[in-house]
Protein backbone atom coordinates (compact mmCIF):
# COMPACT_ATOMS: atom_id res chain seq x y z
CA UNK A 1 0.00 0.00 0.00
CA UNK A 2 1.21 3.44 -0.80
CA UNK A 3 2.28 5.76 1.93
CA UNK A 4 -0.08 8.43 0.67
CA UNK A 5 -3.66 7.62 1.31
CA UNK A 6 -5.32 10.60 -0.38
CA UNK A 7 -3.60 12.17 -3.31
CA UNK A 8 -4.88 14.88 -5.62
CA UNK A 9 -2.93 15.61 -8.75
CA UNK A 10 -3.46 18.91 -10.66
CA UNK A 11 -7.16 18.67 -10.11
CA UNK A 12 -9.30 21.06 -12.17
CA UNK A 13 -13.05 21.35 -12.24
CA UNK A 14 -15.42 24.11 -13.18
CA UNK A 15 -19.17 24.08 -12.91
CA UNK A 16 -20.95 24.20 -16.25
CA UNK A 17 -21.42 27.74 -17.60
CA UNK A 18 -19.56 29.43 -14.73
CA UNK A 19 -15.96 30.15 -13.89
CA UNK A 20 -16.24 28.89 -10.34
CA UNK A 21 -14.69 25.62 -9.41
CA UNK A 22 -11.23 24.50 -8.43
CA UNK A 23 -8.00 24.93 -10.31
CA UNK A 24 -4.76 22.97 -10.20
CA UNK A 25 -5.25 21.39 -6.82
CA UNK A 26 -2.46 19.06 -5.76
CA UNK A 27 -1.77 17.60 -2.33
CA UNK A 28 -1.12 14.28 -0.71
CA UNK A 29 -2.20 13.18 2.70
CA UNK A 30 -0.57 10.31 4.55
CA UNK A 31 -1.96 7.69 6.89
CA UNK A 32 -3.25 8.97 10.16
CA UNK A 33 -2.87 12.61 9.21
CA UNK A 34 -5.52 15.10 10.23
CA UNK A 35 -5.94 17.96 7.81
CA UNK A 36 -8.10 21.07 8.06
CA UNK A 37 -9.48 22.52 4.85
CA UNK A 38 -10.23 26.20 5.36
CA UNK A 39 -11.31 29.08 3.18
CA UNK A 40 -14.12 31.62 2.87
CA UNK A 41 -17.56 30.74 1.55
CA UNK A 42 -17.36 29.75 -2.09
CA UNK A 43 -13.64 29.06 -1.95
CA UNK A 44 -14.21 25.58 -3.33
CA UNK A 45 -14.09 23.44 -0.19
CA UNK A 46 -17.25 21.50 -0.94
CA UNK A 47 -16.30 21.09 -4.59
CA UNK A 48 -13.00 19.61 -3.52
CA UNK A 49 -14.64 17.28 -0.98
CA UNK A 50 -17.06 16.06 -3.64
CA UNK A 51 -14.10 14.96 -5.73
CA UNK A 52 -12.62 12.91 -2.93
CA UNK A 53 -15.67 10.71 -2.97
CA UNK A 54 -16.28 10.53 -6.68
CA UNK A 55 -19.48 12.63 -6.72
CA UNK A 56 -17.82 14.94 -9.18
CA UNK A 57 -15.48 13.82 -11.92
CA UNK A 58 -12.53 16.19 -12.50
CA UNK A 59 -12.22 17.99 -15.83
CA UNK A 60 -8.51 17.20 -15.68
CA UNK A 61 -6.14 15.74 -13.14
CA UNK A 62 -6.93 12.87 -10.83
CA UNK A 63 -7.64 11.83 -7.26
CA UNK A 64 -6.33 8.60 -5.80
CA UNK A 65 -7.43 6.89 -2.64
CA UNK A 66 -4.82 4.43 -1.45
CA UNK A 67 -3.29 2.88 -4.55
CA UNK A 68 -6.21 3.45 -6.87
CA UNK A 69 -7.22 6.51 -8.82
CA UNK A 70 -10.97 7.14 -8.52
CA UNK A 71 -12.78 5.85 -11.58
CA UNK A 72 -16.39 4.92 -12.25
CA UNK A 73 -15.41 1.26 -11.83
CA UNK A 74 -13.96 1.34 -8.36
CA UNK A 75 -16.42 3.92 -7.05
CA UNK A 76 -17.98 1.45 -4.68
CA UNK A 77 -14.63 0.49 -3.16
CA UNK A 78 -13.69 4.16 -2.86
CA UNK A 79 -16.92 5.03 -1.11
CA UNK A 80 -16.37 2.20 1.25
CA UNK A 81 -12.97 3.44 2.33
CA UNK A 82 -13.89 7.14 2.36
CA UNK A 83 -16.55 8.01 4.88
CA UNK A 84 -18.24 11.36 4.41
CA UNK A 85 -20.04 13.24 7.16
CA UNK A 86 -22.34 15.88 5.73
CA UNK A 87 -22.80 19.36 7.04
CA UNK A 88 -26.52 18.96 7.72
CA UNK A 89 -27.15 15.73 9.63
CA UNK A 90 -30.76 15.87 8.43
CA UNK A 91 -29.46 15.07 4.96
CA UNK A 92 -27.54 12.13 6.23
CA UNK A 93 -30.09 10.62 8.57
CA UNK A 94 -32.87 9.65 6.23
CA UNK A 95 -33.98 6.31 7.63
CA UNK A 96 -36.86 5.93 10.09
CA UNK A 97 -34.78 5.08 13.16
CA UNK A 98 -31.20 5.59 14.27
CA UNK A 99 -30.53 1.86 14.06
CA UNK A 100 -31.95 1.61 10.53
CA UNK A 101 -29.83 4.53 9.53
CA UNK A 102 -26.57 3.26 10.93
CA UNK A 103 -27.31 -0.16 9.40
CA UNK A 104 -27.97 1.37 5.98
CA UNK A 105 -24.29 1.42 4.97
CA UNK A 106 -23.32 -2.02 6.29
CA UNK A 107 -26.38 -3.60 4.65
CA UNK A 108 -25.43 -2.01 1.35
CA UNK A 109 -21.96 -3.45 1.77
CA UNK A 110 -23.66 -6.83 1.75
CA UNK A 111 -23.41 -7.65 5.45
CA UNK A 112 -26.00 -10.02 6.87
CA UNK A 113 -28.63 -8.21 8.99
CA UNK A 114 -27.15 -9.55 12.23
CA UNK A 115 -23.60 -8.48 11.56
CA UNK A 116 -24.87 -5.17 10.18
CA UNK A 117 -26.68 -4.63 13.43
CA UNK A 118 -23.56 -5.47 15.40
CA UNK A 119 -21.47 -3.08 13.34
CA UNK A 120 -24.10 -0.41 13.89
CA UNK A 121 -24.30 -0.92 17.64
CA UNK A 122 -20.54 -0.87 17.89
CA UNK A 123 -20.34 2.38 15.92
CA UNK A 124 -23.06 3.96 18.06
CA UNK A 125 -21.22 2.97 21.22
CA UNK A 126 -18.08 4.48 19.82
CA UNK A 127 -19.73 7.90 19.51
CA UNK A 128 -21.57 7.50 22.80
CA UNK A 129 -24.99 7.25 21.22
CA UNK A 130 -25.90 3.65 22.04
CA UNK A 131 -28.93 4.79 24.01
CA UNK A 132 -30.43 6.45 20.92
CA UNK A 133 -30.77 3.22 18.93
CA UNK A 134 -34.55 3.16 18.63
CA UNK A 135 -35.14 6.88 18.30
CA UNK A 136 -36.27 8.43 15.05
CA UNK A 137 -33.78 11.01 13.76
CA UNK A 138 -36.24 13.90 14.21
CA UNK A 139 -36.27 13.28 17.93
CA UNK A 140 -32.56 13.94 18.38
CA UNK A 141 -30.84 17.13 19.47
CA UNK A 142 -28.33 18.80 17.16
CA UNK A 143 -25.39 17.25 18.97
CA UNK A 144 -26.97 13.80 19.01
CA UNK A 145 -27.74 14.06 15.31
CA UNK A 146 -24.12 14.86 14.60
CA UNK A 147 -22.87 11.93 16.67
CA UNK A 148 -25.25 9.54 14.94
CA UNK A 149 -24.26 10.91 11.54
CA UNK A 150 -20.64 10.13 12.40
CA UNK A 151 -21.68 6.66 13.55
CA UNK A 152 -23.41 5.97 10.22
CA UNK A 153 -20.04 6.47 8.59
CA UNK A 154 -17.97 4.65 11.23
CA UNK A 155 -20.20 1.59 10.84
CA UNK A 156 -18.73 1.10 7.39
CA UNK A 157 -15.21 1.11 8.92
CA UNK A 158 -13.70 3.61 6.49
CA UNK A 159 -10.00 4.44 6.29
CA UNK A 160 -10.54 8.13 5.71
CA UNK A 161 -13.08 10.38 7.39
CA UNK A 162 -14.16 13.45 5.48
CA UNK A 163 -16.23 16.00 7.33
CA UNK A 164 -18.00 19.07 6.11
CA UNK A 165 -18.38 21.62 8.90
CA UNK A 166 -18.73 19.14 11.74
CA UNK A 167 -19.00 21.81 14.42
CA UNK A 168 -21.65 24.00 12.77
CA UNK A 169 -24.89 24.59 14.66
CA UNK A 170 -23.66 22.94 17.84
CA UNK A 171 -23.94 24.46 21.26
CA UNK A 172 -20.57 25.00 23.00
CA UNK A 173 -20.72 21.83 25.06
CA UNK A 174 -21.78 19.65 22.15
CA UNK A 175 -18.95 21.19 20.16
CA UNK A 176 -16.49 20.36 22.94
CA UNK A 177 -17.71 16.78 23.06
CA UNK A 178 -17.42 16.48 19.29
CA UNK A 179 -13.82 17.70 19.34
CA UNK A 180 -12.93 15.18 22.06
CA UNK A 181 -14.62 12.43 20.07
CA UNK A 182 -12.80 13.29 16.87
CA UNK A 183 -9.48 13.45 18.75
CA UNK A 184 -9.99 9.86 19.80
CA UNK A 185 -10.23 8.63 16.19
CA UNK A 186 -7.11 7.24 14.62
CA UNK A 187 -8.51 7.62 11.10
CA UNK A 188 -7.03 9.85 8.46
CA UNK A 189 -9.22 12.93 8.67
CA UNK A 190 -10.00 15.76 6.29
CA UNK A 191 -12.12 18.42 7.91
CA UNK A 192 -13.54 21.34 5.98
CA UNK A 193 -14.42 24.04 8.46
CA UNK A 194 -14.85 27.69 9.35
CA UNK A 195 -14.18 26.85 12.98
CA UNK A 196 -10.47 27.61 13.05
CA UNK A 197 -10.27 27.06 16.79
CA UNK A 198 -11.37 23.51 16.23
CA UNK A 199 -8.83 23.21 13.44
CA UNK A 200 -6.12 24.19 15.96
CA UNK A 201 -7.34 21.44 18.30
CA UNK A 202 -7.72 18.68 15.76
CA UNK A 203 -5.45 19.22 12.80
CA UNK A 204 -1.70 19.52 12.72
CA UNK A 205 -1.88 20.43 9.05
CA UNK A 206 -4.03 22.96 7.21
CA UNK A 207 -4.77 23.57 3.56
CA UNK A 208 -6.06 27.03 2.68
CA UNK A 209 -8.29 27.43 -0.34
CA UNK A 210 -8.99 30.79 -1.94
CA UNK A 211 -10.98 31.26 -5.12
CA UNK A 212 -10.53 27.63 -6.07
CA UNK A 213 -6.76 27.57 -5.58
CA UNK A 214 -4.55 26.36 -2.77
CA UNK A 215 -2.89 29.42 -1.24
CA UNK A 216 -1.18 27.61 1.61
CA UNK A 217 -0.51 24.07 2.77
CA UNK A 218 1.45 23.55 5.96
CA UNK A 219 1.47 23.37 9.74
CA UNK A 220 -1.75 24.75 11.16
CA UNK A 221 -0.21 27.15 13.66
CA UNK A 222 2.26 28.58 11.13
CA UNK A 223 -0.54 29.34 8.71
CA UNK A 224 -2.83 30.91 11.27
CA UNK A 225 -0.06 33.19 12.50
CA UNK A 226 0.66 34.48 9.02
CA UNK A 227 -1.42 37.69 8.98
CA UNK A 228 -0.91 38.57 5.33
CA UNK A 229 -1.81 35.10 4.19
CA UNK A 230 -4.88 35.03 6.39
CA UNK A 231 -6.00 38.43 5.13
CA UNK A 232 -5.48 37.60 1.50
CA UNK A 233 -7.40 34.36 1.86
CA UNK A 234 -10.34 36.12 3.48
CA UNK A 235 -9.81 34.47 6.86
CA UNK A 236 -9.67 35.67 10.44
CA UNK A 237 -7.40 34.22 13.09
CA UNK A 238 -8.80 31.72 15.56
CA UNK A 239 -10.22 33.54 18.59
CA UNK A 240 -7.68 32.18 21.01
CA UNK A 241 -4.87 33.58 18.87
CA UNK A 242 -6.41 37.04 18.89
CA UNK A 243 -5.95 39.49 21.69
CA UNK A 244 -8.66 39.88 24.25
CA UNK A 245 -10.52 43.08 23.50
CA UNK A 246 -12.13 43.11 26.93
CA UNK A 247 -9.24 42.52 29.29
CA UNK A 248 -6.81 44.18 26.90
CA UNK A 249 -4.34 41.35 26.78
CA UNK A 250 -3.16 41.25 23.22
CA UNK A 251 -0.70 38.44 22.65
CA UNK A 252 0.83 40.19 19.63
CA UNK A 253 1.33 43.52 21.31
CA UNK A 254 2.66 41.70 24.29
CA UNK A 255 5.16 40.01 22.02
CA UNK A 256 6.16 43.00 19.88
CA UNK A 257 8.13 45.22 22.33
Amino acid sequence: MSHHIVKADTLCYSYPATDCGIHNISFSITHGESVALVGENGAGKSTLLHHLNGFLQPDSGSVSIGDYPITQKNLKAVRRSVGMVFQDPDDQLFMPTVLDDVCFGPLNLGLAPDSAKNAALHALERVGAAHLVDRPPYRLSGGEKRSVAIATVLAMSPDVLIMDEPSSNLDPRARQRLIKLLMSFKHTKIIATHDLDMAVDLCERTIVLHKGKITADGATLDIFQNDTLMNESGLIKPLRMQGCSICGQDPERAESP
Binding site: D91, F94, N108
Partner: peptide, 17 residues
Protein backbone atom coordinates in the same frame (compact mmCIF):
# COMPACT_ATOMS: atom_id res chain seq x y z
CA UNK B 1 -29.68 13.18 0.60
CA UNK B 2 -29.08 11.31 -2.62
CA UNK B 3 -25.35 12.03 -2.29
CA UNK B 4 -25.39 10.87 1.30
CA UNK B 5 -27.11 7.68 0.20
CA UNK B 6 -24.62 7.05 -2.59
CA UNK B 7 -21.86 7.72 -0.14
CA UNK B 8 -22.97 4.79 1.93
CA UNK B 9 -23.19 2.38 -0.94
CA UNK B 10 -26.81 2.93 -2.03
CA UNK B 11 -27.53 0.89 -5.12
CA UNK B 12 -31.23 1.51 -5.59
CA UNK B 13 -32.40 -0.84 -2.86
CA UNK B 14 -33.42 0.21 0.60
CA UNK B 15 -32.95 -2.56 3.11
CA UNK B 16 -35.33 -2.29 6.01
CA UNK B 17 -34.81 -4.25 9.20
Amino acid sequence: IHLAMLCRGFDGNIHTM
